[in-house]
Structures are given as structure tokens and as C-alpha cells.
Amino acid sequence: MIKPVSPALASTAKAPTPALQKAAQGFEAVFLREMIGSMRKAKLTEDDLFGSSATDNFRELADANLADSMSGLGQFGIAKMVEAQMAKFGVKP
């Protein structure tokens, strides 16, 4: 049987530390990179006429930068959920 968390214990949950926030944001960025990479692999359009490995490398770098920027905005909420879950259990990065 799972016992409900008492309000006293819920209020003693530690606030996320800056290191925990940074780790959670990093996790969100990795998640977004994978999502963007999967979208690229779907290739809903025809192959590039001028495609090359250099173009692919540039796109990967641009996608990583985009994912980092997107996670910094906090619009997806993944980092906040990870922070809350880790802070709830007192996990430190």
C-alpha cells in the first residue's frame, strides 16, 4: 500500500539548486536534440541537391545550438519537471 505524502513532508522539499537547474536544463537540451535529429531523419522532402557530409555536420551543430536555445527558454517544461522530481527526493547533481 502506498502511503500519501503528508503536507508537512511536502513543504520540506528542498528548492532546486542552481546546479540542479543546470542539470535539468541540460537533460532537456539532450532530449530536444534527439527529437530534432529524429525529425531530420524523417526527411519529408527530397534529398538535397548539394548535400554533403559537411552540410550534415553543419546541420547537426545548428540543431544542437537550436536545442540549447530552446531549452534555455523553458517553454517545454521538461527541465521544470525534472527539477521538481529531483528536488522532491533531495537529489543533488
Rank of each mutant, 00 (worst) to 15 (best):
T17K: 03
F76S: 07
I36A: 12
G37F: 05
M35R: 02
A19I: 11
L73F: 06
M70W: 09
I36D: 10
M81Q: 10
S6A: 11
L44Q: 12
P4V: 12
D68T: 11
E28K: 08
E28V: 03
D56K: 13
K3H: 09
K14N: 12
A84Q: 09
P18N: 14
A84L: 08
P16Q: 10
A8H: 07
M70F: 10
F50Y: 15
M1P: 00
T55L: 06
S6H: 09
L66R: 02
K3S: 04
N57G: 09
S71F: 08
D56F: 05
K80H: 10
R59G: 00
A10I: 02
G77P: 09
A79L: 01
R33T: 14
G74Q: 08
D63W: 01
I78M: 03
L66K: 05
A10V: 03
Q25C: 07
E83L: 05
G37Q: 06
G51A: 12
V30F: 13
A10H: 05
S53L: 14
L32P: 00
F58D: 12
T55G: 06
T55K: 06
N57I: 00
I36R: 06
L73R: 10
S52E: 09
K14R: 11
G51P: 05
K41W: 04
A8K: 12
P4E: 09
F58K: 03
L49M: 11
P4Q: 13
S71D: 01
N65T: 09
A15I: 14
G90Y: 02
G90R: 00
F76I: 09
E60Y: 05
A79D: 01
T17S: 12
N65H: 14
L61N: 04
F76N: 11
G26N: 14
L9F: 14
F27V: 06
E28T: 03
A84D: 05
I78A: 02
R59M: 07
L66E: 02
L61E: 12
D48T: 03
E34K: 12
S52W: 12
A84F: 01
A23F: 15
T45P: 00
F58A: 03
F89S: 06
F89T: 08
E46I: 08
M39Y: 13
S11Y: 01
S52N: 14
D63P: 01
L49H: 05
T12S: 15
I2H: 06
S38K: 05
K80E: 06
G37K: 03
M39V: 15
L20N: 06
E28L: 04
E83F: 05
G77C: 04
A79S: 04
S53E: 15
A67H: 02
P4I: 14
M35L: 15
S69P: 00
I36M: 15
A13E: 15
T55P: 08
S6G: 11
V91R: 12
T17C: 05
V5W: 09
R59W: 07
E83D: 01
Q21E: 13
R33C: 14
S6K: 07
E46W: 12
K92H: 09
E60A: 10
S71Y: 02
K3T: 05
L61Q: 12
M70N: 01
P18R: 13
